[in-house]
Design a protein around this nucleic acid. Structure first.
Length: 489
RNA sequence: GCCGCCCUAGCUCAGUUGGUUAGAGCGCCAGAUUGUGGCUCUGGAGGUCUCCCGUUCGAUCCGGGAGGGCGGUACCA
């Protein structure tokens, strides 16, 4: 037999192993957010992990670079398939495929894993869970307003404090109108302007001014080419992005002064007015959803309103540096996505957030599942011959709704106690020869012991005291364990 | 993708001006404690010093390349 080298035990980079604590936090988010979304009339919906690559749009694998951006492989009929990189593209495909039979507008939400084949970074993985809610088939601004209200309600339901985040709203048509007035028609130039504005929070107005004009050299000496706007054009864009201060009505007033005149800009303004009216009657407060012209959302496919859920938390990392959480989710109106399949324009709008990102935001806000996940009641194994007794105990406990297990390792008693301690078990059950003969059980309250152990200095005394330990009639097992659980939930 | 820094035990890091057996703290395992978690003490396991090529009598250390990590920048459906 040939000696093959041992594989290195490690997860692929960008892929995460998650233990009970993280999974519990994510499951809780999923449960609470789903309830809110269903209350808004959105139905649960999911698609498969793979799509045919051409359905995913711009990142078409080719023979040379089949995995650029996505994880792709060839089906046995030679068709390229790719793991979905978001939940919107599969939705567009499904809607195009099922348009005739769907109730319209189609309102759905989805939790699902998505994959991106790109360089991972801190807080950036190649596999993660997204949650999306979308309305397909309504061009009304009220559809956008409902998505915004739903996003606010969903984030709040997940446990994010109301003052820990704000939904920022903008409309692509405003900037398009502004640029049209300034004589910018080139799509590439428009995109460069969007990218420049997107960096406002990081580079500040001066850095963005450079990027709107000729370009900017950063600290490392690298040069980024600018959008090539005139000085007047750049100033107009900057004035526009600075208009988002105060309540929604004030921002609208200020915007109408800055935008003035262009047909597309006026259309965008009118949509924001309608959104404001709807939000107000839906009870979404001024400090929960604001208009902010500096919000961009990089994506090319947005055609109207865009939103971003920004975290306002100020926290410090291990080194004491302030942490910018930035955006926890975003979305907007995309009226052209279904048309890629059908040729027919179908208006759509939606919001999306990353579940693990939200979970870490909740942790930072002190609202995460702080407690470790509790272990089961552990039945100590003294002698394998007595297994039937041990299993009848866990059987009773389980039947009473109490998580329980028999220790099935091979270590001695001390190690078994340590095991139960490490699992954060509430209690250990001891059923040695003596107890079995006497029809009794010994129950050790581990929580009580944990509370007392910090004050103990002498090992012999600690062991002699046996805090929280009681030997009772076997028939009282369940009620005694239940008493321990209820005393310290 | 581009630029910079880094890679020694499970983790955090010492160290060798290139010389036989590479260390610490924490963690892990065991004993002291025949059926008891913490503290303490004692002992133990665990390393091709990231990999490959080169220079050298000799490389964990010097040079080149690759891989991985971190930071910045670009991109981000």
């Amino acid at each position: 037999m040939t000696q093959s080298p041992r594989p290195e035990a490690r997860a692929p980079r960008g892929f995460m192993d998650r233990r009970a604590r993280d999974l519990a936090a994510e499951r809780e988010i999923l449960t609470k957010v789903s309830a809110v979304y269903e209350q808004f009339g959105f139905e649960a919906f999911d698609t498969g992990a793979f799509e045919y690559a051409d359905a995913l749009g711009k990142f078409l694998p080719d023979a040379d670079r089949p995995n650029e951006g996505v994880f792709a492989l060839q089906d046995d009929d030679e068709q390229w398939m790719a793991l979905r990189y978001d939940l919107t593209a599969p939705l567009a495909r499904f809607v195009a495929q099922s348009w005739e039979t769907l109730p319209k507008p189609f309102r759905r939400y989805a939790f699902g894993t998505v994959w991106r084949n790109e360089k991972p970074g801190p807080g950036r993985y190649r596999e993660f869970t997204q949650c999306d809610a979308d309305t397909v088939g309504s061009a009304r601004p009220e559809a956008d307003a409902e998505i915004i209200a739903l996003a606010v309600a969903g984030l709040e339901a997940s446990g994010l404090p109301r003052d820990a985040f704000v939904l920022k709203i903008n409309n692509r048509k405003l900037l398009n109108g502004l640029l049209a007035t300034a004589g910018v028609a080139d799509e590439g130039q428009k995109l460069a302007v969007l990218r420049a504005v997107d960096k406002l929070d990081r580079l500040g107005p001066d850095g963005v001014r450079l990027l709107l004009g000729e370009g900017r050299k950063d600290e490392s000496g690298a040069f980024t080419k600018g959008a090539g706007l005139s000085v007047a054009g750049a100033e107009a864009v900057l004035a526009f992005t600075a208009a988002g201060v105060g309540g929604r009505a004030q921002t609208l007033d200020r915007l109408s002064n800055v935008i003035g005149g262009s047909a597309e800009g006026d259309e965008g303004l009118a949509e924001l007015v309608a959104i404001d009216v709807a939000l107000t009657s839906l009870g979404v407060a001024q400090d929960q959803a604001q208009f902010d012209p500096s919000v961009v959302r990089g994506l090319e496919y947005y055609t109207g309103a865009v939103f971003e859920a920004e975290l306002l938390l100020q926290t410090l990392d291990e080194k004491g540096q302030p942490v910018r959480f930035g955006s926890v989710g975003g979305g907007g109106r995309y009226d052209d996505l279904v048309a890629r399949f059908t040729g027919e324009r179908v208006p759509a709008t939606g919001f999306s957030f990353g579940v693990s990102r939200l979970a870490s935001a909740l942790r930072a806000a002190g609202r995460g599942l702080g407690a470790e996940t509790r272990g089961p009641v552990v039945v100590i194994c003294f002698n394998p011959d007595d297994m039937p007794h041990y299993f009848s105990v866990v059987g009773e406990l389980r039947a009473a709704g109490i998580p329980a297990e028999v220790y099935l390792g091979s270590s001695g008693m001390k190690a078994q106690m340590k095991y139960a301690d490490r699992r954060l078990s509430p209690a250990a059950i001891m059923l040695g020869g003596d107890e079995i003969a006497a029809g009794q059980v010994t129950i050790k309250d581990l929580d009580l012991g944990r509370a007392l152990s910090s004050g103990v200095t002498d090992n012999a005394a600690w062991r002699a005291e046996r805090p929280g330990q009681q030997t009772i009639a076997r028939t009282d097992l369940v009620s005694a364990v239940r008493a321990i659980l209820e005393a310290r939930p």
